[in-house]
Nucleic acid binder design. Structure first.
Lengths: 143, 143
DNA sequence: TCATATAAAGATATTAATATCCTTTTATCC
DNA sequence: GGATAAAAGGATATTAATATCTTTATATGA
């Protein structure tokens, strides 16, 4: 469903939200990739993408690391759109460039409702809420 | 969401169902790839996969081609499972090997309901029903 | 029986996703 | 100011998905 990069990105963002609820210190690559069990160098690239897209803030140098601007509410859909693009949320299931209600692919109307509720859910699930669940040990970043 | 191969496969199967409702003649690769607007050689490979998986029947030789065993009801989920595997329907959204209710990833419970209804829909949508919609010009195989 | 049209099978090519490695920039601490 | 530790950036490697091409097997019909 999501690309591997996107899977990591969702874990990264929710992990930082989780950690930041406990301490305001910047969080470094090492801590992140250890916590979510992801390859370090690859994780660094995804962190770059998230930072460029302004979903994440970063500081260089000795006490550097990553942190979230707490004023901004970030939802899972923001992360998905940044890493995988909006195709999975908006695009045609069968690859039409323009799959509207007027020129629908064979699955369009069949799956319309289900896709919409999935999209709504991703649009309404923010990372702080997810992070709270981790704190209550109701969800995990790695197996 | 689905791989390109799977997109083609869904079109292939629904197209054959659609054509077969009109004529019992075997349908050849050329007609299929033309109708669904897919690369011919690649389409041939997918047809092979579908045939091996017994979702589709084939006949070689001069009047050869592909056809459906009308006694068997095939749903979209059968096609998806054959081409992309069951991961997209059953597997963890964030790549856990074992993502159950007891050891859930950070998205598991959040998206559980939405995934389930998507899966149900794919499990209950059969290709003949889809084909009928095409016949009524309510859905298309290509743009 | 032989030419032809078809699917099956195998080999290869191309492109995109995943992943790593090395160098550069930047901030901190001594 | 120099050593150090961090992120950023660029280059490369590996693997998987997409796609094509060529050969083989099989059935038909003249």
């Amino acid at each position: 469903m999501f690309s591997k990069s996107c899977e990591y990105a969702i874990k990264i963002m929710t992990f930082i939200a989780f950690r930041q609820a406990k301490s305001k210190e910047h969080i470094g690559l090492d801590a992140i990739s250890e916590a979510i069990d992801s390859p370090k160098a690859f994780t660094a690239k995804i962190l770059q993408q998230l930072t460029k897209a302004d979903l994440l803030k970063s500081v260089r140098g000795r006490t550097g690391g990553f942190y979230l601007d707490q004023n901004r509410v970030i939802v899972i859909a923001d992360i998905v759109r940044t890493i995988d693009g909006s195709k999975i949320l908006e695009g045609c299931l069968l690859g039409f460039g323009e799959c509207q209600d007027e020129n629908p692919c064979v699955l369009h109307h069949q799956i319309k409702k289900e896709r919409k509720s999935l999209k709504n859910k991703l649009n309404s699930t923010d990372i702080y809420t997810v992070a709270k669940r981790v704190n209550r040990k109701k969800a995990y970043f790695k197996e």
